[in-house]
Design a binder for these strands. Sequence first.
DNA 1: CGGGATCCGTGCCGATACTG
DNA 2: CAGTATCGGCACGGATCCCG
Lengths: 120, 120
Amino acid sequence: MENFHHIGSCPIRDVLSKLGDKWTMLIMVTLKTNGTMRFCDIQKTIGDISQRMLTVTLRSLETDGLIVRKVYAEVPPRVEYSLTETGYSLMPHIESLVGWALEHMADIMERRGVREEVRS
Amino acid sequence: MENFHHIGSCPIRDVLSKLGDKWTMLIMVTLKTNGTMRFCDIQKTIGDISQRMLTVTLRSLETDGLIVRKVYAEVPPRVEYSLTETGYSLMPHIESLVGWALEHMADIMERRGVREEVRS
DNA sequence: CGGGATCCGTGCCGATACTG
DNA sequence: CAGTATCGGCACGGATCCCG
């Protein structure tokens, strides 16, 4: 853990720019939990993701080699997504982070004041 | 690791909304590496963070109880920041994620094509 | 069913100027 | 030194329409 930043590339910036967006982690956790899934099922599981963002994020994950996209030549079309080995190797670290969140997020929310209300 | 999402709060969304922004993790890693630091030193270490974003992010981290802010009644003013116990407890999980990034980011960058060039 | 293309609002963040 | 205040760009992401 050196002082990476400031020169070329920084692993913190890299990992955050890839996985720090609104939907990437949610999709990967969903795929890890449910295994291979179809486009529509992922969308229904997450619930409030738009078609556009699901497509965009899936494409990005596929490009990065974290998920695989498998198209079946049928009508109606069927496309299935699943984690790659690399994608799978990321999950323990995420779960570790989620574990921390489950322990401390209640306190953090309380400090910050829950008077932000519903807002949505 | 259940299907948290869609109802009330989701630990993934929580943790990402708190730590997923551009500077939070960088500041925490900096503080973990260097220990107690002054405002100006943090800024110089990170290099390209603006005064505004450093202030805003530090305040947010303080509110969440991840760092402590200690003001000394001197002239010129001196303010020191350091990780709290809670903040410290987060770092191993981050380092674990950074470790993963160091192993796989090169491949990911290669896949994505480094033809995005410099851009900055 | 599983997208692609387009338009557009919001909010993050940077730049700048000023202060105790 | 360590901020606060204000303005504004621009990218992220939502809504909508269309297609094979």
